[in-house]
Design a protein around this nucleic acid. Structure first.
Length: 90
DNA sequence: GTTGAGCGT
């Protein structure tokens, strides 16, 4: 399951996020989003967990909790938006 | 500071 983690502090790194989620299950990947044009953090991240039960547990456990002085928003992630000028040739 | 990317991996 993909997990969205928003309202993050810029002090948290991917390893910190991973360790935080590892408390509730096995983390597959963690991906902190940075602005590709400016290279600065966007303040949110995605965590992928293979086990849905563990993912849900992590979401309920970590949503609304404080991390590095920021209140986290954790919930299931939505699929990435399709880009304009990409994919289809129609 | 709130829903990710990239040009042939």
């Amino acid at each position: 399951m993909n997990i969205y983690v928003g309202n993050m502090s810029y002090n948290v790194s991917e390893s910190m996020l991973r360790e935080t989620f590892e408390e509730y299950g096995s983390v597959d990947t963690v991906n902190i989003i940075t602005d590709r044009d400016s290279g600065r953090p966007k303040g949110f991240a995605f965590v992928e967990m293979k086990d849905d039960g563990q993912a849900r547990a992590a979401i309920e456990a970590l949503n609304g909790t404080d991390l590095e002085g920021r209140n986290l928003s954790v919930n299931e992630a939505k699929p990435r938006a399709p880009r304009p000028t990409g994919g289809s040739r129609w």
